[in-house]
């Protein structure tokens, strides 16, 4: 068990380190003169050489690359990614400022997407009518094929401008969260729903379900007691991977709905070539991605006793079980 946890934590740390290193190479090593990136492209020619030299010194660009790298890595470990070029504020503070609103949006969307996916899978499995099943099973592919910016604008048109149920812009209050949540959750729910529908159908026709029928269980009981847990296991894996997409997807959603958040901040940072900020965001996304997947990996053994058994230190039964 300890070995498993160490392995998974190690993998998560590696992902974050690799993201940091990669962005360092891309942003600080590869450009011919990283100092250029620190200034607004429009004003770059008006900057006097002394200032440039001063800045280069401040940022340590004169040092050998390896020293720069270790220096930045050391600072990053303490949570210091330098200062934003645009605002001059510390990157960490700038990110922490907008992080909560994106986190709420992303995790809310993930929960909503899972909810939608589970409802689709449950309806498709429990219905006795073929046409209901066909209809419901067609939803996921439909939801994937509509791009976020289109569905976002459509939802805005209907619920905000026509019906005036929810505010169109801004990040104040719970009501302003509803439309962005839906917009972000719908495309993400598609693949999860597709996977769940399939795994529910497979599990529903497995041997232990027949045993349950023979016990005298009813259809609803079987789906809840037997099928649900076995069939939802794969959804966790995909949910963890999807979380990365959600943060990426928040760029568009936050732009369409004019919310503050990581997505919009990233967009602005890239537009203005705010290198330290971009690096901070990349590392942050890597951290959240690694963290979510670590949690999924650690929850798995709790849900599946078979996995737990292969992890336990001494397991004579599993050894003989492997023989059969």
């Amino acid at each position: 068990m300890l070995r498993y946890v160490t392995l998974k934590v190690g993998r998560a740390l590696f992902v974050v380190w690799a993201a940091f290193t990669l962005t360092f190479v891309l942003l600080f090593v590869l450009p011919v003169n990283p100092v250029d990136l620190l200034f607004d492209p429009a004003e770059i020619n008006t900057i006097p050489p002394e200032v440039r030299k001063q800045v280069a010194e401040n940022y340590g660009f004169d040092d050998p690359v390896i020293v720069q790298y270790l220096d930045r890595l050391g600072h990053a470990l303490t949570g210091d990614f330098g200062n934003s070029v645009q605002s001059g504020r510390p990157v960490t503070a700038a990110i922490l400022d907008v992080l909560p609103s994106t986190l709420v949006l992303a995790s809310g969307a993930l929960v909503l997407a899972l909810l939608i996916a589970f409802v689709i899978a449950l309806v498709a499995t429990s219905t006795r009518h073929a046409w209901v099943r066909n209809l419901v099973e067609a939803l996921p592919s439909g939801s994937v094929s509509v791009p976020v910016f289109l569905s976002g604008i459509l939802i805005l048109q209907i619920f905000s401008f026509r019906l005036s149920w929810f505010p169109a812009f801004g990040g104040e209050g719970a009501r302003s969260l509803v439309l962005p949540l839906i917009t972000l959750a719908i495309p993400v729910s598609g693949p999860i729903a597709q996977l769940l529908v399939r795994s529910f159908a497979t599990e529903f026709h497995s041997g232990y379900v027949t045993t349950s029928w023979a016990k005298g269980a009813t259809r609803g009981g079987i789906i809840i007691r037997d099928v649900f847990r076995n069939a939802s296991l794969p959804a966790f894996t995909i949910a963890g991977i999807t979380f990365g997409n959600l943060i990426a997807g928040s760029v568009i959603t936050e732009t369409v709905f004019a919310r503050k958040g990581i997505g919009r901040m990233t967009q602005i940072a890239i537009n203005t070539l705010d290198v330290p900020l971009v690096q901070g965001v990349v590392v942050l996304v890597a951290v959240s991605f690694a963290l979510i997947n670590l949690i999924v990996d650690l929850i798995y053994p709790l849900l599946d006793p078979r996995l737990r058994a292969t992890l336990a230190i001494s397991i004579p039964q599993a050894a003989t079980g492997g023989l059969r």
Binding site: S206, G207, Y208, T211, A214, K215, D226, N230, R324
Partner: peptide
Amino acid sequence: NDRRMALVRGNYVGFIPQDPNTSLNPVK
């Protein structure tokens, strides 16, 4: 229908399936 048969199955007729390796719920 299923609901009425559920009262017969288990209660009146017991069933032993073919493959014991797949006929028990693995997570229970």
